[in-house]
Simulated scan of single mutants.
Amino acid sequence: MIYTAQVKVMPLKELLDPQGKAVMGGLGNLGLGSIKDVRIGKNITLQVEAESEAAAKAIAEDAAKKLLANQVMEMFEITIG
């Protein structure tokens, strides 16, 4: 069966997010000062062939750990649809 895995990758909260800071400055310049924080990440969609939803999640997690996320600087979250 084919499952759709959504992998959300975000910078760790403890680390500076330079892209988020740049967007934050731009929003302030546009008069949107009520936005107090911006974090920029990635959303990756995988089509996974697997025997079960649990197996598809395990495959997506393996991909995230090995390639999609830098676990020193980023965290990831996987949902299967």
Rank of each mutant, 00 (worst) to 15 (best):
L32M: 15
I35W: 15
A22V: 00
S34L: 11
G41R: 11
G20M: 03
L30E: 05
L27R: 12
R39K: 13
L32E: 11
L16W: 00
V23G: 09
Q19V: 00
D37F: 06
P18T: 03
S34T: 12
K13E: 15
P18V: 03
N29Y: 06
L15E: 09
D37L: 07
K21V: 00
L27Y: 06
G28I: 03
E14H: 09
D37E: 13
E14W: 06
E14N: 11
Q19K: 04
G41L: 10
R39W: 01
L32C: 10
G20S: 06
P18Q: 06
G25W: 03
I35R: 12
I40N: 07
L30P: 08
L15W: 03
G25P: 04
G26R: 13
A22F: 00
G28V: 04
L16E: 04
R39L: 03
G31P: 03
D17N: 03
L30Y: 08
G41K: 12
I35T: 15
N29E: 13
L16T: 00
V23H: 08
G20L: 03
G20W: 00
V23I: 15
K36I: 08
L12R: 14
D17E: 10
I40C: 08
R39S: 06
K21P: 01
K42I: 06
V23C: 11
G28T: 05
V38L: 07
G31E: 02
K13A: 15
G33N: 15
I35A: 15
K21C: 00
L27H: 07
G33I: 04
G26K: 13
D17Q: 02
